[in-house]
């Protein structure tokens, strides 16, 4: 198994498209950072809206490394699934269309192991991708913009997290994002086992995410009640939950707390269930599949 995983990793590492994702992310984050370096205060004034009329706000301090990273993640994490699908959607079907799948499956390794090795290799890729995002969006932002308290804007208001209380939240947020992305990877894997070309699963994964997100966000009671609870996209924004700090009855934040911890844990549980179900389905289908490519 370890042998197979090494081989799969080697293949992913040697594929040019793997690095495409890293390049796109770096370019995207640098663009945001540059923009905020020049117009960060204006952006913060926009975010604070009319609050600036009644409050004295130090906009300069608001634009700090933690805030920049939060902004980046808000914009970026919605699109990372595409980059994940780009690699995960290709793992089986790409080999089918290239013609190597029949060689691979005629080797003395079990098909279950092949699928699991491919999924774990994808996990390593997703982990590297998120680590890359973390380094550029967090480490570089902190170096450029400095460290200060993080103000998080929610529909219901603003909340401030002291700078000493932020870092661990990012740690967990990236961890959560990893699980969410592994669901995307599992969807791509399943579609990949069903297809013989690599574009199909990639496009289908992105399509599924878009449709599910739309249904999740639509305020139609029928969907909200009967469909939304079962969609994986409903649980994918959970990383933000780590930045919703708990507070006392009179609005004082409690350091180190998370407002909706049970909801986050529920999301993690739901996403893990999705992963288990989708990967099991992939293994089942791949084991039964006649390789005709």
């Amino acid at each position: 198994m370890w042998n197979l995983l090494q081989i799969e990793l080697f293949k992913i590492m040697r594929k040019p498209r793997t690095y495409l994702a890293f390049g796109i992310i770096a370019a995207f984050i640098f663009l945001i950072q540059l923009g905020l370096l020049v117009n960060g205060k204006d952006w913060m004034m926009f975010m604070m809206g009319s609050l600036g009329e009644t409050m004295n706000i130090d906009y300069g301090k608001l634009v700090n490394g933690y805030a920049v990273c939060f902004f980046v993640l808000n914009l970026l994490l919605v699109h990372v699934p595409i980059l994940v699908a780009l690699v995960a959607g290709d793992v089986v079907s790409g080999e089918a269309s290239m013609g190597t799948l029949r060689l691979l499956a005629a080797k003395p390794v079990s098909r279950t192991q092949i699928i699991l090795a491919k999924y774990f290799a994808t996990a390593v890729y997703v982990f590297a991708l998120l680590a890359w995002i973390a380094v550029i969006s967090l480490v570089v932002s902190l170096a450029v913009f400095g460290k200060n308290d993080l103000v998080v804007a929610k529909t219901s208001g603003l909340q401030l997290i002291e700078s000493s209380d932020v870092l661990w939240r990012y740690f967990f947020a990236f961890g959560f994002a990893f699980i969410a992305m592994m669901v995307v990877a599992a969807i791509s894997l399943l579609l990949s086992t069903l297809s013989e070309n690599s574009i199909g699963p990639i496009v289908a994964t992105v399509g599924i995410i878009i449709v599910c997100t739309l249904i999740s966000e639509m305020e139609i009671p029928l969907y909200q009640k009967y469909i939304k609870p079962y969609l994986f996209t409903t649980y994918m924004l959970g990383w933000k939950g780590f930045f919703y700090i708990g507070s006392t009855a009179d609005g004082e934040t409690i350091k180190g707390s998370i407002q909706y911890l049970p909801a986050i844990l529920k999301s993690v549980g739901a996403l893990l269930l999705y992963i288990v179900a989708l990967v099991s389905a992939s293994v089942f289908i791949f084991r039964k599949k006649d390789i005709l490519s």
Binding site: M47, G49, S50, K154, S156, L158, L237, Q259, Y260, A263
Partner: peptide, 22 residues
């Protein structure tokens, strides 16, 4: 006296626990 804060439209999707009533 203070006015309420309003998040600029289209800025973000919130994470909710589903129990909070607006």
């Amino acid at each position: 006296n203070t006015k309420d804060y309003k998040l600029p439209k289209g800025v973000t999707f919130d994470f909710e626990d589903g129990s909070t009533k607006k």
